[in-house]
Design a protein around this nucleic acid. Structure first.
Lengths: 106, 106
DNA sequence: TTCATATTTCCATTATCATGGAATTATGAA
DNA sequence: TTCATAATTCCATGATAATGGAAATATGAA
């Protein structure tokens, strides 16, 4: 949850989401965002610990890509906490995004 | 985005979501979560800055309640960043929670 | 091997956040 | 007013996170 709290990490993650499954090599991310290699490595490790990105070795390069499943789980968690738990909030302006969301649908 | 990163703040927010529109007085929240008044005040101010809670004065009490609109905006933001932006991710396991979500539906 | 490059780890420094007692402010009651 | 209480602000202290150069590690190329 806190992995996306840092602005740089959010930038990294958004970049990878836009990129799709191929991902970017660490150095490319660092260059695109103007980060020193060590700093990028630090942040991407945080994202990795949170399971938000996946690493794939490709020769000397390590490609990082966004993990959509974990992202959806996070969204589901927030959705649950916004709507499903709020018994007394049913009558308020807390309408679900679309349908009521069950926890961790397959 | 980072306001919910802190565990105590997430607890506070969840408590308020479950409570609904009436909210709880600051002291009640502090007591329920076992937090000193100053600490609670610090965290709830963060939530307030993020727009995640609303404050309503009631005599000497200040009632805090969850702001569902901002919560939904946050979920919408995450949903957009998971699915809508990812052109190349369409073919991956990134399926929207239900229907494609348009930004900030009324 | 040797070299070049990609990435990470190390680590000292800095910055930011969190904590909570005490003082302060704000409000209603007596 | 005066008092009691709710809540915030102040502030010193401690904890955690971020930064990035330099060194170490890893991998493929020559």
């Amino acid at each position: 949850m806190s992995a996306l709290a840092h602005e740089k990490r959010l930038e990294i993650f958004r970049l990878l989401v836009k990129r799709g499954p191929d991902g970017f090599a660490a150095g490319v991310i660092a260059e695109k965002l103007g980060l020193p290699a060590a700093t990028l490595s630090f942040h991407i490790k945080e994202l990795d610990r949170a399971g938000l990105v996946a690493a794939r070795q490709d020769g000397r390069f390590i490609h990082y890509s966004a993990n959509f499943a974990v992202m959806r789980a996070l969204i589901g968690f927030l959705t649950d906490n916004c709507c499903s738990l709020a018994e007394s909030a049913r009558a308020t302006n807390c309408s679900p995004l679309t349908q009521p969301v069950r926890r961790k649908r397959a």
